[in-house]
């Protein structure tokens, strides 16, 4: 039963990833009226200025002289092998660019996720379990503000207060641990707010369940009920959401890295879109989808540990 559950989930992940590649290929190579011109314009080449021979040579170089289905299949194989083609504006392999920029983003993403969990779970549990009435009220309202604030506004506010006024952290750059703090906080605030909203709601629902009354009747302590019964049952929806939030951390890094001028994948994505560097954009999106799919696969595999009913009752695909 368990093996079937796992293999079903893995198969689904691979299918989704393949489809994500297909969607990006369709949008980037079939949607523009003239993808060749898009490529040439990004490489600072004026189509009207070059001879047909040169044009043919360039088309061959970028691999757009073949029929579309061949381009699609060839590129798919190259992507599987880890070859993401060459950046048009920077003239270096995309894989090399990504390898250079990835560490900075990974550090930022991991810190942001850690902060999201601490802030989100902390706010939600205090909002439900705190004994002080006004603290519960304040904490249950706070997330609604957190999800409404534009992330870039939060980022600029953090720079203004903590970098310019208080001078606690650097306003930009990616050298040293101190430079991670502000962008990580910026990324964590909206996601933690979302997590807190969902968790607060499911914790409140869990506390209304009959098993909590039973536990109380058996004489279980307050904290025993809260953590052993309510929290464990409320964790599932929050875990699903956490997977989604983790998976899109790379997307949020785009704004954070642009504001704090950090040389990560996100900044690379922003620059590449501005310069319409198609291969780089495509590689980043496929990698982001891969990240998203694998994180949600891991979450799917954690579910049965929390709730064994999932494997037994669930039909796969």
């Amino acid at each position: 039963m368990f093996a079937r559950y796992i293999s079903g989930r893995v198969l689904q992940a691979v299918l989704v990833l393949w489809a994500a590649y297909t969607v990006t290929f369709v949008v980037l190579y079939l949607l523009p009226s003239d993808p060749v011109q898009l490529l040439l314009a990004a490489g600072n080449i004026d189509v009207t200025q070059i001879s047909p021979d040169q044009l043919a040579a360039l088309k061959h170089q970028y691999g757009v002289d073949q029929p579309v289905y061949l381009q699609y299949v060839n590129q798919l194989f190259e992507f599987v092998r880890g070859n993401f083609g060459e950046s048009i504006t920077k003239n270096v392999p995309v894989a090399q660019l990504l390898a250079q920029r990835l560490p900075s983003t990974l550090v930022l993403g991991a810190s942001a996720v850690l902060l999201t969990i601490v802030l989100g779970v902390g706010t939600a549990s205090l909002a439900v379990f705190a004994k002080v009435g006004w603290l519960r009220t304040v904490l249950s309202r706070l997330p609604a503000i957190g999800v409404s604030l534009p992330p870039f506004f939060v980022g600029l506010l953090l720079i203004q207060v903590f970098a310019f006024q208080l001078k606690w952290f650097p306003a930009s750059g990616d050298s040293g641990a101190a430079s991670v703090v502000l962008p990580a906080v910026m990324m964590a605030i909206p996601t933690a707010a979302l997590l807190a909203q969902v968790l607060t709601r499911s914790l409140e629902d869990a506390l209304d369940e009959p098993y909590v009354v039973t536990a109380r009747a058996k004489g279980l302590s307050r904290s025993g009920i809260q953590w052993r019964h309510a929290f464990r049952n409320a964790a599932l929806p929050a875990l699903t959401l956490l997977g989604l939030l983790l998976g899109s951390a790379l997307a949020e890094a785009v704004v954070a890295e642009t504001i704090f001028t950090r040389n990560g994948i996100g900044k690379l994505a922003q620059e590449s879109v501005l310069q319409q560097d198609v291969p780089v954009v495509q590689a980043i999106v496929v990698i982001a989808a891969a990240l998203f799919v694998s994180i949600n696969l891991i979450i799917d595999l954690i579910y049965p540990l929390l709730d064994p009913r999932i494997v037994r009752g669930h039909s796969v695909i």
Partner: peptide
């Protein structure tokens, strides 16, 4: 619905970036 699932698997902002790259 599988197509919809795939669209959900690409973070919104990145999907938007792909479209902006293609459309200008």
């Amino acid at each position: 619905m599988r197509l919809v699932d795939v669209m959900l698997a690409i973070p919104r902002l990145l999907l938007a970036l792909v479209i902006v790259t293609a459309l200008g």
